[in-house]
């Protein structure tokens, strides 16, 4: 279950991404919830569980797709001057939009999966109030949690 605020933002963002033909996948806590598991977002990082949820996207890390993403952010009235002057790096250009109660993040790569294209092919497309949203497949979502899993086990055993 996501809050109405996140739901509304998700709709607007995905509409802009679709309008600009951005290749993206919705990943992270929102998708975890879609596949049936309600988790406390943020618990994997800080050790201090947070109720709030962030919205994470994996975008295809090519210069063409990055430029389409910047145009989509323009459409959302996000300040993008810095992005236009930035030298795009397919491995290092991570973007975050800090809203008041949650964050929206765009990642060029994610741990546990090498190929955006392969993951994109197996993605699931859902509709949210007539908006099409591409979400990472359940199998790929499980792969992304492997590193977190290893880290947590190391910590638990060490403690």
């Amino acid at each position: 279950m996501i809050s109405n605020e996140i739901r509304d933002s998700l709709k607007k963002i995905c509409l802009a991404l679709n309008n600009q033909h951005v290749e993206y996948l919705l990943i992270g806590g929102v998708v975890v919830g879609y596949y049936g598991f309600q988790r406390i977002s943020g618990a994997g990082y800080s050790g201090r569980p947070e109720i709030k949820q962030d919205v994470d996207f994996w975008y295809r890390p090519t210069i063409e797709n990055y430029l389409r993403l910047v145009t989509a952010l323009d459409e959302l009235n996000i300040e993008t001057r810095e992005l236009k002057n930035l030298v795009f790096d397919s491995k290092k250009t991570f973007l975050r939009i800090p809203f008041d109660t949650f964050k929206v993040e765009f990642l060029p790569n994610i741990a546990g999966i090498d190929s955006f294209i392969e993951s994109y092919k197996s993605a699931t497309q859902i509709e949210l109030d007539d908006n099409k949203i591409n979400i990472i497949s359940c199998n790929d979502l499980l792969k992304t949690k492997r590193l977190l899993q290893e880290k947590l086990i190391r910590l638990t055993l060490r403690n």
Binding site: G42, Y45, S46, G47, R48, L73, L76, N77, I78, E79, T80, E82, L83, L86, D89, K92, T93, F94, L95, R96, I97, P98, F99, E105, L107, I110, A111, K151, L152, L155, T156, N159
Partner: peptide
Amino acid sequence: MKIEVYTSVEEMKLSMVEDSISPVESLM
């Protein structure tokens, strides 16, 4: 709304500090 740019997940998720986690928290 201003966007923030980072060069890695670790930089973006500054709170990923292993030492801050307690034994009970890691087990949970």
